[in-house]
Measured scan of single mutants.
Amino acid sequence: TIDEIIKALEQAVKDNKPIQVGNYTVTSADEAEKLAKKLKKEY
């Protein structure tokens, strides 16, 4: 679900690790936030 994706992003940001979500690779908190907002609009 979208919530699980967002939790995974938040965890990756805390661990400061890049995370791959679908076609996106998120490497920073800023990118994670942008991706989360984008995904919320889509779903």
Rank of each mutant, 00 (worst) to 15 (best):
D30F: 11
D15E: 09
A36F: 10
A8F: 10
L39P: 03
G22M: 07
E42H: 10
N23I: 12
I2M: 10
E33T: 06
T25A: 08
Y43F: 13
A12V: 12
E10T: 06
K41W: 12
K40R: 13
T1N: 09
L35D: 02
I19Q: 03
A8H: 03
K7M: 11
D3V: 13
K40Q: 10
S28N: 15
L39I: 04
I6K: 01
K7P: 03
K40E: 08
K40F: 10
E33N: 07
S28W: 09
Q11C: 03
V26F: 04
K38I: 08
K7T: 06
D30T: 07
A36N: 01
T25D: 05
Q20W: 05
T1P: 10
E4V: 06
I6F: 06
Y24A: 05
G22E: 06
L35R: 00
A32P: 00
A32K: 03
I5M: 08
N16D: 06
V13M: 14
K37D: 15
E10Y: 13
V26C: 14
D30H: 10
E31W: 01
K37H: 14
V13A: 14
A29W: 07
K37I: 14
D3N: 07
V21P: 00
K40V: 06
K37A: 14
K34E: 14
K41A: 15
K38Y: 14
K37Y: 06
I5C: 10
A36C: 14
Q20T: 15
I2S: 02
K37L: 14
A12N: 03
D15V: 08
A36S: 08
E31Y: 02
K34N: 11
A12P: 00
P18I: 08
E31C: 10
T27K: 11
S28L: 03
L9Q: 02
L39K: 00
Q11A: 09
P18M: 05
K38Q: 13
L9M: 05
L35A: 02
I19K: 03
K7E: 09
L35G: 01
Y43N: 14
I5F: 04
K14Y: 09
A32I: 06
A29L: 07
K41Y: 12
A32S: 01
K37R: 10
P18S: 09
E42N: 07
T27P: 05
I2F: 12
L35H: 01
N23A: 11
E31G: 02
I19Y: 05
A29N: 04
S28A: 00
K38L: 13
V26Q: 02
Q20V: 13
L35M: 05
K34I: 10
